[in-house]
Amino acid sequence: MGSVGSDPATRHLAPTVERSVKVLVVGAFGVGKTTLIDAVSEIPVLSTEETITTASVGVDPARAAKSTTTVAMDFGRVTVGGTTALYLFGTPGQRRFWDLWAGLADGAVGALIVVDTRRLEESFEVLDQLEEHTRMPLAVVVNEFPDSPRHSGDAVRAALDLPAGTPVVSGDLRSRADAVEALQVLVGRAVELRRAEGGAAA
């Protein structure tokens, strides 16, 4: 009968992997979300077509017309420490996709915000959405393009009105090392916040 893993395109996880976590990779259109995921992922970037029901925002909810849209979600995976699969979900920032966020944000380690400093203002829509997930650890990675103006972390934090202590790093997201560093910074931030919480609760 069918052999194990009969489709060679299917990349199963190692049998030692027994748990999973996820991070969201968020940002405005074309900032480099997929580039980052691809740089880190141990499998080719995969995508799914999700159907979402969107209601027009800012309209009386009872009267708002609902329509159905398809949105492509891309994601990658990397096995860390031999027993944990880390998933990276690229999440579109546009307001009309916000419905998708609730289910995705649930249980996430945090969100890595990819920004392009040549058009920072395009990130505002994403940040508005993140404000609804106040407990979500955040880190910013500035995707450096050759003509990007250089800003300090403080300047980026201020421009984006991010919580104090939100780490800001920058790099070429086509480079695996830079992309991995951005992830380390996000997970490091999550650890820091969790420790602080634990301390406060104890």
């Binding site: 976590v21 944990t84 991995v180 992830l183 650890v191």
Partner: peptide
């Protein structure tokens, strides 16, 4: 949990 986060960070 914290232990899982630390393991992921170590792995990265």
């Amino acid at each position: 949990g914290l232990d899982l986060l630390e393991e992921v960070l170590d792995g990265l």
